[in-house]
Amino acid sequence: MIVIRLDRVRKEYPRHRHLTRGLKQSLLHLPDLIRSMSADRFFALDDISVEVQKGEAVGIIGANGSGKSTLLGLIAGVIGPQSGTVEVRGRVAPLLELGAGFHYELTGYENIVLNGVLMGLTRREVAARLEAIVAFSGLESSLNEPLRTYSSGMVARLGFSVAVHLDPDILLIDEILAVGDTHFQARCYDRLDEFRRQGTTFVIVSHALSEIRYLCDRVVWLAGGKIMMQGKPDEVIAAYEKS
């Protein structure tokens, strides 16, 4: 079953979004301005078609600015395409940023609830998972303290702990695998393996090619908003490393 289908998706951004010349100059040169605004665009994604099967783990690699994060943003539904269609079936956990909405004045517990609800759980669902989240984080002793007293590693651990308890059908991951100390990282990988066994679909953006090789069934290599190559991890990664 196909759970993610992108069909000839284009996403373009104008280069200038603000009036750089000031209002008067802009008004005096209005035709120029409009012409330059419509001409000066670049394609973040240009005619991309990708399908992902249920339970598949797809890695996305490519240089900075090649369109990887835009692709994840489209699947997550935070941005829309210029043309083409994006279809996604199932509950998506977009881990584009750990601890979305975390507030540094609130305690760890309060942030778990805030983040969990923002990521799509009801308060009751968060309460039901609270114990598991706390245990996974290994931060019991600090959870009554405000987040500003945490180290950045602890914040990331807390964010990741909520993230892996969202029970998603589709997990979108943007460069957030390597958090915490080696001990905690091992626990993260265990948890991701568990997700894979349960048939969760993965889309992972990462520059850590060893992670991609370890987790993914298929790799898509993006360059300049186009698909350069896709296929078995070893082959695509080898070609990418040579380029």
């Binding site: 489209l74 539904g77 043309s83 269609t85 279809e87 996604v88 199932g90």
Partner: peptide, 10 residues
Amino acid sequence: MATQAVVTPS
């Protein structure tokens, strides 16, 4: 031009 995104989240 088809610009409609058909996203079906939970």
